[in-house]
């Protein structure tokens, strides 16, 4: 829901949500601009997160450190996962997401962790083979 700066909502949660900002955020999602994008089941979530990081890396102004460096390093992580050159270090990824969420100057790079966190929470199992827990 809501484009890259929105939330990734699993189908089974849709019925529990009203279409308003507060409700979305209280459940850990984000309404964003409220558009709906449906992700097919056969579309890799690794690919989708890569797209999200790529988006913020492309759009980052470069002023704040967590935004400029964090979104690029996130993109690199998923580059490597896509190419199968390295697995995603889950602990480091989680720390990176918290760092960006709390530390970024504006809502661009500060909001991108939300859909990624949604994916890790609801679709993490799909990505297990791409991940290592410790790093």
């Amino acid at each position: 829901m809501g484009g890259p700066l929105g939330g990734v909502v699993p189908l089974n949660e849709i019925d529990n949500l009203n279409l308003d900002f507060q409700e979305f955020s209280s459940k850990g999602f984000m309404l964003g601009h409220a558009s709906v994008v449906s992700i097919p089941k056969d579309f890799s979530m690794t690919e989708y997160i890569h797209h999200l990081f790529e988006f913020s890396a492309e759009e980052s102004c470069g002023k704040c450190f967590p935004g400029r460096l964090g979104s690029y390093r996130g993109k690199e992580m998923f580059d490597q996962a896509k190419k199968k050159t390295a697995k995603i270090p889950l602990k480091l990824l989680n720390e990176l997401l918290v760092t960006m969420q709390k530390g970024c100057l504006c809502a661009l790079c500060g909001a991108i962790p939300t859909p990624i966190m949604n994916i890790l929470k609801y679709f993490g199992d799909e990505m297990k083979s791409d991940m290592v827990k410790d790093n």
């Binding site: 450190f65 967590p66 460096l69 964090g70 390093r73 720390e95 990176l96 918290v98 760092t99 709390k102 530390g103």
Partner: peptide
């Protein structure tokens, strides 16, 4: 602790480049 972690993680990002 949260703040210390946040700062550490930001500086870690700086050290990557």
């Amino acid at each position: 602790q949260n703040l210390q972690d946040l700062r550490k993680n930001i500086v870690e990002l700086v050290l990557t480049d």
